[in-house]
Design a protein around this nucleic acid. Structure first.
Lengths: 202, 202
DNA sequence: CCTTCCAAACCGACCGGTCGGTCTGTTCTA
DNA sequence: TAGAACAGACCGACCGGTCGGTTTGGAAGG
């Protein structure tokens, strides 16, 4: 039974993985269930045994899509002691690395954005992710201010701006494969921000 | 003949307008040619007289989609005399206004982004737009530096970061209809940037 | 001014093909 | 042997695009 459940979950994960690759290269609507069937080596019946519809597969991907980055952010916020400024620098470096390692999946993100406009469930999931991310950033900024490292008027606005900056860079990056040094841009953006948030000398 | 040509162009524009509304609310693939036929009041044959395919309509929209914003930017760069800092502020205010007035069309932008990953023509068009936009920003930044208003290490990187910031904010805004004050965020981002670019006091 | 004529513009029934999803089995495993 | 897991033929809706025919408005000719 344990083995069974594990098998079923593995199969599910395998299907999701195959579907992700297809979705990344062809988009949601141009990817057919038969494509996924072929990619998994399963049959139509086998596929529909694990997922009840195409949307079900898409939602399955969405549900786990943003998880990893959130975990890193969480860990950073709870890291004790270190200076907030250094942790912000570490965060941006980590984001650059993470995004570069997931480069092949970025197109799916764009598909989700386009979908979110029309599908409330997708919008809610993505917004939930950004909300939690923003909350973490606000906590970091507050710690920085408490330690006198930063001077921030409206932390929530600044936090959302940071998120927007990173997402915007990822967007431009995905449109210019190979001609856009994501890491440099992210690090530059972070340094500019830190400079703007520097407390005025007494 | 003149009247005829103008009629044909008007029809074309009318079709593009109707298609844009449909694409904005249903996305590219979920919008059918029959939908567009119904929305224009034309017939299938009439529609295909003016556009040879669905892709042709999409490209037709793309070709004129980003034009207006570029014109404003161009005008700002060539505006003589005014301080670069003030022109940057004016630019961000203008962008906020423009985006808010085109709110209904933002979903189409997301469709284009998703499409650009797979369609080189779409990618080239969008990249061309961003390139020209960046060139204009770099010119503005250079003017600011020449006048001693700004201190910028890498103007090109900063310009791309500005573009990314605005696009990222537009993205988040489109995902949170009614819960996101785009103007405030854009103006805040601009002020933060200007602060970061302030030359060090002598 | 009226008729003829022609091409641009338009109509809508139709077609080939595809797609998401179903259904009736068969196989494997505990 | 029961039920989970899978196979694959099949279905009906629908979609992008076509095609033969019709309307229309203005130029040409008398």
């Amino acid at each position: 039974m344990n083995a069974k459940a594990s098998d079923a979950e593995q199969r599910r994960a395998q299907i999701l993985m195959a579907a992700m690759e297809l979705f990344a290269s062809k988009g949601f609507s141009a990817t057919t269930m038969n494509d996924i069937v072929a990619a998994t080596g399963l049959s139509k019946g086998g596929l529909y045994w694990h997922f009840k519809s195409k949307d079900d597969i898409i939602i399955g991907i969405l549900d786990q899509f943003f998880d990893p980055e959130l975990a890193w952010m969480q860990a950073l916020v709870e890291q004790p002691g270190d200076s907030a400024v250094e942790r912000l620098r570490a965060l941006s470096a980590q984001i650059a690395t993470a995004m570069q390692s997931m480069e092949a999946l970025v197109p799916i993100m764009l598909e989700f954005f386009a979908l979110a406009v029309r599908d409330q469930q997708v919008a809610d999931t993505i917004n939930g992710y950004y909300r939690r991310y923003t909350v973490g950033l606000v906590a970091l900024l507050e710690q920085g201010q408490a330690q006198g490292e930063l001077d921030i008027a409206d932390k929530h606005t600044v936090a959302l701006n940071i998120v927007a900056q990173f997402e915007g860079l990822a967007l431009l990056w995905s449109l210019r494969p190979g001609q856009f040094d994501l890491r440099t841009h992210i690090l530059t953006a972070t340094e500019l921000l830190l400079k703007a948030l520097q407390p005025a000398p007494a």
